[in-house]
Protein backbone atom coordinates (compact mmCIF):
# COMPACT_ATOMS: atom_id res chain seq x y z
CA UNK A 1 0.00 0.00 0.00
CA UNK A 2 1.00 3.60 -0.47
CA UNK A 3 1.92 4.23 3.13
CA UNK A 4 4.42 1.42 3.44
CA UNK A 5 7.60 0.72 1.60
CA UNK A 6 6.75 -2.92 1.51
CA UNK A 7 5.14 -5.28 -0.93
CA UNK A 8 1.45 -5.95 -0.44
CA UNK A 9 0.93 -9.70 -0.69
CA UNK A 10 -2.40 -11.29 -1.59
CA UNK A 11 -2.47 -14.96 -0.73
CA UNK A 12 -5.11 -16.10 -3.23
CA UNK A 13 -6.67 -19.50 -3.75
CA UNK A 14 -4.95 -20.11 -7.07
CA UNK A 15 -2.60 -17.17 -7.41
CA UNK A 16 -0.22 -14.94 -5.52
CA UNK A 17 -0.67 -11.21 -5.86
CA UNK A 18 2.30 -8.90 -5.26
CA UNK A 19 1.62 -5.18 -5.35
CA UNK A 20 3.21 -1.83 -4.89
CA UNK A 21 1.64 1.44 -5.89
CA UNK A 22 3.29 1.16 -9.30
CA UNK A 23 3.61 -2.58 -9.94
CA UNK A 24 1.04 -5.34 -9.75
CA UNK A 25 2.03 -8.93 -10.31
CA UNK A 26 -0.23 -11.98 -10.36
CA UNK A 27 1.56 -15.31 -10.29
CA UNK A 28 -0.91 -18.02 -11.28
CA UNK A 29 -0.47 -21.40 -9.67
CA UNK A 30 -2.94 -22.86 -12.19
CA UNK A 31 -1.29 -21.47 -15.31
CA UNK A 32 2.17 -21.98 -13.84
CA UNK A 33 3.68 -18.58 -14.38
CA UNK A 34 3.44 -14.82 -14.23
CA UNK A 35 -0.10 -14.15 -15.43
CA UNK A 36 -0.20 -10.43 -14.98
CA UNK A 37 2.44 -7.72 -14.95
CA UNK A 38 0.91 -4.31 -14.58
CA UNK A 39 2.97 -1.16 -14.40
CA UNK A 40 1.01 1.99 -13.63
CA UNK A 41 -2.14 0.02 -14.42
CA UNK A 42 -0.98 -1.03 -17.89
CA UNK A 43 -0.90 -4.75 -18.56
CA UNK A 44 2.24 -6.09 -20.23
CA UNK A 45 1.40 -9.76 -20.66
CA UNK A 46 -1.08 -11.50 -22.94
CA UNK A 47 -0.15 -14.99 -21.76
CA UNK A 48 2.32 -16.24 -19.15
CA UNK A 49 5.96 -15.96 -20.20
CA UNK A 50 7.40 -19.39 -20.98
CA UNK A 51 10.83 -20.77 -21.75
CA UNK A 52 11.52 -20.77 -25.45
CA UNK A 53 13.58 -23.50 -27.14
CA UNK A 54 12.86 -22.93 -30.80
CA UNK A 55 13.75 -20.34 -33.35
CA UNK A 56 12.34 -20.05 -36.82
CA UNK A 57 14.18 -22.32 -39.24
CA UNK A 58 16.76 -20.51 -41.36
CA UNK A 59 17.74 -21.41 -44.92
CA UNK A 60 21.01 -22.81 -43.57
CA UNK A 61 19.13 -24.93 -41.02
CA UNK A 62 17.14 -26.43 -43.84
CA UNK A 63 20.27 -27.03 -45.83
CA UNK A 64 22.17 -28.86 -43.10
CA UNK A 65 19.15 -30.61 -41.61
CA UNK A 66 19.46 -28.94 -38.17
CA UNK A 67 15.75 -28.38 -37.75
CA UNK A 68 15.07 -32.06 -38.45
CA UNK A 69 17.65 -33.15 -35.88
CA UNK A 70 16.41 -30.62 -33.31
CA UNK A 71 12.69 -31.13 -34.06
CA UNK A 72 11.68 -32.21 -30.58
CA UNK A 73 12.59 -28.75 -29.29
CA UNK A 74 9.75 -27.39 -31.39
CA UNK A 75 7.33 -29.48 -29.34
CA UNK A 76 9.08 -28.46 -26.14
CA UNK A 77 8.79 -24.81 -27.16
CA UNK A 78 5.06 -25.11 -27.70
CA UNK A 79 3.90 -27.57 -25.04
CA UNK A 80 6.26 -27.68 -22.05
CA UNK A 81 4.33 -27.15 -18.85
CA UNK A 82 5.01 -26.05 -15.33
CA UNK A 83 5.69 -29.06 -13.11
CA UNK A 84 6.51 -27.44 -9.77
CA UNK A 85 6.31 -24.06 -8.07
CA UNK A 86 8.60 -22.91 -5.26
CA UNK A 87 7.56 -19.89 -3.20
CA UNK A 88 9.44 -17.97 -0.54
CA UNK A 89 8.13 -14.77 1.04
CA UNK A 90 10.81 -13.05 3.12
CA UNK A 91 12.21 -15.97 5.10
CA UNK A 92 9.15 -18.18 4.89
CA UNK A 93 9.23 -21.03 2.44
CA UNK A 94 5.80 -22.30 1.40
CA UNK A 95 5.68 -25.96 0.51
CA UNK A 96 2.94 -26.82 -0.29
CA UNK A 97 1.72 -23.55 -1.79
CA UNK A 98 -0.31 -21.34 0.57
CA UNK A 99 -3.76 -22.09 -0.90
CA UNK A 100 -6.99 -22.74 1.01
CA UNK A 101 -7.49 -23.78 3.72
CA UNK A 102 -3.94 -22.75 4.72
CA UNK A 103 -4.38 -19.16 3.47
CA UNK A 104 -7.56 -18.64 5.53
CA UNK A 105 -5.23 -17.32 8.27
CA UNK A 106 -4.21 -14.36 6.13
CA UNK A 107 -5.95 -11.02 5.54
CA UNK A 108 -5.93 -8.23 3.01
CA UNK A 109 -3.12 -6.63 5.01
CA UNK A 110 -0.11 -8.85 4.45
CA UNK A 111 3.22 -7.22 3.68
CA UNK A 112 6.73 -8.42 2.88
CA UNK A 113 10.11 -7.17 1.67
CA UNK A 114 10.96 -9.91 -0.77
CA UNK A 115 9.11 -12.49 -2.82
CA UNK A 116 10.89 -15.27 -4.63
CA UNK A 117 8.87 -17.57 -6.82
CA UNK A 118 10.23 -20.21 -9.18
CA UNK A 119 8.47 -22.21 -11.84
CA UNK A 120 9.96 -25.48 -13.04
CA UNK A 121 9.04 -26.23 -16.63
CA UNK A 122 9.44 -29.82 -17.68
CA UNK A 123 10.35 -30.12 -21.34
CA UNK A 124 8.31 -32.40 -23.59
CA UNK A 125 11.57 -33.87 -24.93
CA UNK A 126 12.86 -37.42 -24.60
CA UNK A 127 14.59 -37.53 -22.25
CA UNK A 128 12.85 -34.69 -20.41
CA UNK A 129 14.72 -32.01 -18.55
CA UNK A 130 13.87 -29.06 -16.36
CA UNK A 131 14.10 -25.38 -17.07
CA UNK A 132 13.44 -23.07 -14.14
CA UNK A 133 12.35 -19.44 -14.23
CA UNK A 134 12.72 -17.51 -10.99
CA UNK A 135 11.17 -14.12 -10.26
CA UNK A 136 12.51 -12.14 -7.32
CA UNK A 137 10.47 -9.07 -6.42
CA UNK A 138 12.15 -6.65 -4.06
CA UNK A 139 10.39 -4.04 -1.95
CA UNK A 140 10.68 -1.46 -4.72
CA UNK A 141 8.48 -3.70 -6.88
CA UNK A 142 11.20 -4.40 -9.42
CA UNK A 143 11.51 -7.99 -10.60
CA UNK A 144 14.75 -9.80 -11.22
CA UNK A 145 14.30 -12.77 -13.51
CA UNK A 146 16.65 -15.71 -13.63
CA UNK A 147 16.50 -18.73 -15.83
CA UNK A 148 18.27 -22.01 -15.21
CA UNK A 149 18.40 -24.77 -17.77
CA UNK A 150 19.49 -28.27 -16.87
CA UNK A 151 20.84 -29.94 -19.96
CA UNK A 152 20.57 -33.65 -20.37
CA UNK A 153 22.66 -36.19 -22.17
CA UNK A 154 20.94 -37.54 -25.24
CA UNK A 155 19.09 -34.37 -26.19
CA UNK A 156 19.71 -32.75 -29.57
CA UNK A 157 21.40 -29.34 -29.69
CA UNK A 158 19.24 -26.48 -28.49
CA UNK A 159 18.19 -24.11 -31.29
CA UNK A 160 17.80 -21.28 -28.76
CA UNK A 161 17.31 -20.76 -25.05
CA UNK A 162 15.41 -17.85 -23.58
CA UNK A 163 12.05 -16.55 -22.49
CA UNK A 164 9.13 -15.53 -24.62
CA UNK A 165 6.98 -12.60 -23.52
CA UNK A 166 3.83 -11.96 -25.53
CA UNK A 167 2.43 -8.47 -25.17
CA UNK A 168 -1.28 -7.66 -25.37
CA UNK A 169 -0.88 -5.05 -28.11
CA UNK A 170 1.76 -4.05 -30.66
CA UNK A 171 4.67 -1.99 -29.49
CA UNK A 172 5.22 1.29 -31.26
CA UNK A 173 8.94 0.70 -31.02
CA UNK A 174 11.87 -0.06 -28.75
CA UNK A 175 15.14 1.46 -27.69
CA UNK A 176 18.20 -0.41 -26.54
CA UNK A 177 21.77 0.05 -25.48
CA UNK A 178 23.63 -2.68 -27.32
CA UNK A 179 24.85 -3.60 -30.76
CA UNK A 180 23.88 -2.07 -34.07
CA UNK A 181 21.65 -3.84 -36.58
CA UNK A 182 20.89 -7.56 -36.37
CA UNK A 183 23.55 -9.61 -34.57
CA UNK A 184 24.13 -13.23 -33.62
CA UNK A 185 26.71 -15.02 -31.42
CA UNK A 186 28.78 -15.80 -34.51
CA UNK A 187 28.04 -12.55 -36.36
CA UNK A 188 28.59 -9.51 -34.25
CA UNK A 189 32.17 -8.40 -34.83
CA UNK A 190 31.12 -5.69 -37.26
CA UNK A 191 28.55 -4.16 -34.93
CA UNK A 192 28.94 -0.89 -33.09
CA UNK A 193 27.86 -0.46 -29.46
CA UNK A 194 25.44 2.35 -28.78
CA UNK A 195 21.87 3.43 -28.12
CA UNK A 196 19.51 2.50 -30.93
CA UNK A 197 15.90 3.45 -31.43
CA UNK A 198 13.74 1.20 -33.58
CA UNK A 199 10.34 2.25 -34.86
CA UNK A 200 7.66 -0.40 -34.88
CA UNK A 201 8.55 -4.08 -34.84
CA UNK A 202 10.41 -4.58 -38.11
CA UNK A 203 10.88 -8.03 -39.62
CA UNK A 204 14.06 -8.41 -41.71
CA UNK A 205 12.92 -9.02 -45.26
CA UNK A 206 14.54 -12.38 -45.93
CA UNK A 207 12.91 -14.03 -48.95
CA UNK A 208 11.60 -16.88 -46.85
CA UNK A 209 10.46 -15.70 -43.38
CA UNK A 210 12.92 -17.10 -40.84
CA UNK A 211 14.79 -16.31 -37.65
CA UNK A 212 15.58 -12.60 -37.61
CA UNK A 213 15.90 -9.50 -35.50
CA UNK A 214 18.33 -10.73 -32.80
CA UNK A 215 20.27 -8.15 -30.81
CA UNK A 216 23.30 -9.45 -28.90
CA UNK A 217 25.14 -8.01 -25.88
CA UNK A 218 22.41 -5.65 -24.70
CA UNK A 219 22.65 -3.72 -21.46
CA UNK A 220 19.21 -2.17 -21.49
CA UNK A 221 15.96 -2.48 -23.44
CA UNK A 222 12.94 -0.17 -23.28
CA UNK A 223 9.76 -1.18 -25.10
CA UNK A 224 7.13 1.45 -25.82
CA UNK A 225 3.41 0.96 -26.41
CA UNK A 226 0.49 3.34 -26.53
CA UNK A 227 -2.48 1.00 -26.71
CA UNK A 228 -3.95 -1.60 -24.40
CA UNK A 229 -6.72 -4.18 -24.60
CA UNK A 230 -8.50 -2.73 -21.58
CA UNK A 231 -11.79 -1.51 -23.01
CA UNK A 232 -12.09 1.11 -20.27
CA UNK A 233 -8.65 2.60 -20.94
CA UNK A 234 -8.84 5.49 -23.37
CA UNK A 235 -5.36 6.81 -22.62
CA UNK A 236 -3.18 6.98 -25.75
CA UNK A 237 0.02 8.22 -24.15
CA UNK A 238 3.19 6.19 -24.46
CA UNK A 239 4.08 3.81 -21.68
CA UNK A 240 7.16 1.70 -21.26
CA UNK A 241 8.67 -1.49 -19.94
CA UNK A 242 12.33 -1.40 -19.06
CA UNK A 243 14.53 -4.49 -19.01
CA UNK A 244 18.10 -4.25 -17.72
CA UNK A 245 20.91 -6.75 -17.76
CA UNK A 246 21.88 -8.27 -14.43
CA UNK A 247 25.41 -9.68 -14.30
CA UNK A 248 25.76 -10.38 -18.03
CA UNK A 249 24.37 -8.62 -21.11
CA UNK A 250 21.19 -10.03 -22.58
CA UNK A 251 20.17 -10.90 -26.11
CA UNK A 252 16.71 -10.19 -27.41
CA UNK A 253 14.47 -9.90 -30.40
CA UNK A 254 11.25 -7.90 -30.46
CA UNK A 255 9.02 -9.17 -33.23
CA UNK A 256 5.36 -9.22 -34.19
CA UNK A 257 5.47 -13.02 -34.66
CA UNK A 258 6.44 -16.06 -32.65
CA UNK A 259 9.06 -18.46 -34.02
CA UNK A 260 6.26 -20.84 -35.00
CA UNK A 261 4.39 -18.12 -36.85
CA UNK A 262 7.52 -17.24 -38.85
Amino acid sequence: MDYTNKLHIIYGDAALGVQTKKFQYIFSYEKGGLESLKINNKEWLYRIPTPTFWRATTDNDRGNGFSVKAAQWLGADMFSQCSKIHLTVDDQKFDPLPIAPFNNQFSNHEYANLVKISFDYKTTTTPATICTITYVIDSSGHATIKMRYMGKKGLPSLPVLGMRFIMPTMATGFEYYGLSSETYPDRKAGAKKGVFRVKGLPVTKYLVPQENGMHMDTDKLIITRNTSLNNADRDTNDFQLEINKTDKPLNFSCLPYTAEEL
Binding site: A14, N103, N104, N108, N231, A232
Partner: peptide, 25 residues
Protein backbone atom coordinates in the same frame (compact mmCIF):
# COMPACT_ATOMS: atom_id res chain seq x y z
CA UNK B 1 -21.72 -0.52 -17.66
CA UNK B 2 -18.64 -2.40 -18.92
CA UNK B 3 -19.88 -2.53 -22.51
CA UNK B 4 -20.22 1.24 -22.41
CA UNK B 5 -16.46 1.14 -21.71
CA UNK B 6 -16.64 2.71 -18.28
CA UNK B 7 -15.21 -0.40 -16.63
CA UNK B 8 -13.02 -3.26 -17.76
CA UNK B 9 -14.58 -6.42 -19.16
CA UNK B 10 -13.58 -9.52 -17.28
CA UNK B 11 -14.34 -13.15 -17.92
CA UNK B 12 -13.61 -15.60 -15.13
CA UNK B 13 -14.92 -19.05 -14.30
CA UNK B 14 -14.66 -20.49 -10.79
CA UNK B 15 -12.34 -18.07 -9.03
CA UNK B 16 -13.66 -14.76 -7.78
CA UNK B 17 -12.85 -11.77 -9.99
CA UNK B 18 -10.63 -10.26 -7.28
CA UNK B 19 -8.29 -13.28 -7.25
CA UNK B 20 -4.70 -12.13 -6.73
CA UNK B 21 -5.85 -8.54 -6.15
CA UNK B 22 -7.84 -8.46 -2.92
CA UNK B 23 -8.04 -11.00 -0.11
CA UNK B 24 -11.63 -11.67 0.92
CA UNK B 25 -13.59 -14.22 2.89
Amino acid sequence: IELNNYAQNQYINTLYPWEGKIFRR
